[in-house]
């Protein structure tokens, strides 16, 4: 398969409460093996997926949030986060995990994966994709 398509995984739900976030991440990790141009989008309650300091012990659920920091190893390096969704929930970039990737085209310099975009900017990101999978 030589064709490379632009895949966008849209995450709209809180990390816990439903399984969407966790099963979305499973698709992203499997999909990484297909060498496509992958981006992820976080909007609505989906922005909570990236928050730091998640502790699920008392809820008896699996804390899968560390996986986001490993995405760079899977060449998933574009995590678009919607500014308005952060604002509406009283969150800032400081509340989110520091997610980085090593840029192999720039002497493996560590660069941030999170890209904060406006709602209008997110629409542009979506319009630019070949395949949008929504979770």
């Amino acid at each position: 398969m030589s064709e490379v398509k632009k895949f966008l995984y849209v995450n709209r739900k809180a990390p816990y409460g439903t399984i969407y976030a966790q099963e979305s991440l499973e698709v992203v990790l499997i999909g990484a093996a297909f060498d496509q141009d992958v981006s992820m989008a976080f909007l609505d309650d989906g922005v909570f997926q990236l928050t730091k300091g998640q502790d699920t012990k008392e809820a008896g659920l699996k804390n899968f949030s560390p996986t986001f920091r490993a995405l760079g190893d899977y060449e998933v390096t574009k995590l678009y986060v919607e500014q308005e969704s952060l604002d509406e929930r009283g969150l800032t970039l400081d509340d989110l995990q520091d997610i980085q990737y090593e840029d192999e085209d720039d002497d493996y310099a560590e660069k941030p994966s999170i890209i904060v975009v406006s709602r209008a900017g997110m629409a542009d990101v979506m319009a630019d994709q070949d395949v949008v999978l929504s979770f």
Binding site: K5, V27, I30, V131, V132, L133
Partner: peptide, 20 residues
């Protein structure tokens, strides 16, 4: 079958539509 079938479908189809 596996999740790879979902990605492969996205690659091979003109349109991928989610009903959810």
């Amino acid at each position: 079958s596996g999740l790879g079938q979902l990605i492969e479908m996205g690659i091979q189809c003109d349109r991928t539509i989610t009903f959810g």
